[in-house]
C-alpha cells in the first residue's frame, strides 16, 4: 500500500517537474500571467475606481462576482460547522460549580439550589479546579481593544494600503478568539452571542448581495457601483470607490462572524460550555 502510494506521489512529482521548463522563470515581467488582464487592472484602476490599491479594486469591483460567492462559501462553511456539531441540551437542574471571583472560592450548587445571577462576580466553571490566570486575562484585556481597533483600521484603509474586508475581518475574529481563549466561552457569549454571530455573518453576505441588486435597481449591471452615484453623491468614479467600501464592510462582518462561530463550535465540540 505504502509503496504504491509512494510511486503515485513520485509519478505526480515527476510529471510536474517535467512541465517546469515550459514555465516562466521566477520574477519574469513577460510571464504569460502578467500579460493579459493584469496590465489593464494596474493602468486603469485610478481612472475607473479611484482606488490606488489594485488588489482591493480587483477584489471588490473587477472580480466582484467571485468575491461575493467566496463570501457565501465562508458563510456556508460556518453554517455547516454549526449544523454538524451543535448539540442542544435541555435545561436540567444538575449540580453546577461556580467560582466567586474576588475570593477565589468554588461553590457547588446542588440540584434545586439557588443559582447566582449572571455577573462578573460569579463565574460558572465545569470542573472542580480551573486555574484563574490573572496575568493572561489582564494581558488579553489590554490587547483585545487595540486588536479590534486595528482590525477596523485595516478594513477602512484597504483602499490605500494592504488590507480590506477579509484581512480586517480575520483580525477582528482573532481578537474575539483571544478573548475567548484567555477568559472562557461563556463570558465571550455575553459580549457576542451565538445568535448575533450567525445573524452578523448572514447580514454581511446580505449587504454584499443587496448592493449588487441596488445597482440593478438603479439601471446598471449587478455590482456595477457606478450607477450608485445619485445615492452616494459625487461622480460615478467616486461612487465605485464608495461601493467597494460598502462591500468590504459586508465581507468584514461575514468573515469575522464566521471565524468566531467556527471557534465557538469547534472549541466546545458544539456544547457551548466553558470551552478550551
Amino acid at each position: 500500500m505504502k509503496t504504491i502510494a509512494l510511486l503515485t506521489v513520485l509519478a505526480i512529482g515527476a510529471f510536474l517537474l517535467y512541465g517546469t521548463p515550459e514555465f516562466p522563470a521566477w520574477g519574469d515581467p513577460q510571464a504569460p500571467a502578467a500579460l493579459h488582464v493584469s496590465p489593464y487592472y494596474i493602468e486603469h484602476t485610478i481612472e475607473d475606481t479611484a482606488v490606488p490599491n489594485v488588489v482591493t479594486s480587483v477584489l471588490a469591483d473587477y472580480r466582484g462576482y467571485d468575491t461575493m460567492f467566496e463570501t457565501s462559501v465562508i458563510f456556508a462553511a460556518g453554517l455547516a460547522c454549526l449544523m454538524l456539531l451543535r448539540r442542544y441540551q435541555p435545561k436540567t437542574q444538575e449540580t453546577r460549580l461556580y467560582r466567586h471571583v474576588p475570593t477565589g472560592i468554588t461553590l457547588r450548587i446542588a440540584q434545586g439550589g439557588k443559582i447566582p445571577e449572571a455577573s462578573d462576580e460569579f463565574e460558572r466553571i465545569d470542573s472542580q479546579w480551573v486555574p484563574y490566570d490573572l496575568i493572561v486575562k489582564l494581558t488579553a484585556r489590554l490587547i483585545v481593544p487595540f486588536a479590534q481597533l486595528f482590525a477596523l483600521y485595516v478594513i477602512a484603509h484597504g483602499h490605500h494600503s494592504p488590507g480590506g474586508g477579509f484581512q480586517g475581518g480575520v483580525i477582528y475574529g482573532a481578537a474575539l478568539i483571544l478573548y475567548a481563549v484567555s477568559f472562557d466561552l461563556r463570558s465571550t457569549f455575553r459580549r457576542l452571542s451565538e445568535r448575533t454571530a450567525i445573524l452578523l455573518s448572514a447580514a454581511g453576505v446580505l449587504i454584499y448581495a443587496s448592493t449588487g441588486f441596488l445597482c440593478m435597481l438603479m439601471g446598471g449591471n449587478f455590482l456595477d457601483y457606478g450607477y450608485l452615484a445619485p445615492l452616494l453623491g459625487g461622480d460615478p468614479v467616486m461612487a465605485r470607490s464608495h461601493g467597494i467600501f460598502i462591500v468590504e464592510i459586508g465581507v468584514g462582518m461575514a468573515v469575522m462572524a464566521v471565524m468566531v462561530s467556527l471557534y465557538y463550535n469547534l472549541a466546545s465540540a458544539g456544547r457551548h460550555d466553558e470551552g478550551l
Binding site: 487592472y41 480587483v58 460547522c81
Partner: peptide
C-alpha cells in the same frame, strides 16, 4: 501582478473555513 494575490487572498480565508 495583483491578480494572483486577489485569488489567494480569498482562497486563504476559504481554506480556513473549509478546515473548520
Amino acid at each position: 501582478n495583483p491578480l494572483p494575490h486577489v485569488l489567494m487572498l480569498t482562497a486563504i480565508v476559504v481554506s480556513v473555513a473549509t478546515l473548520g
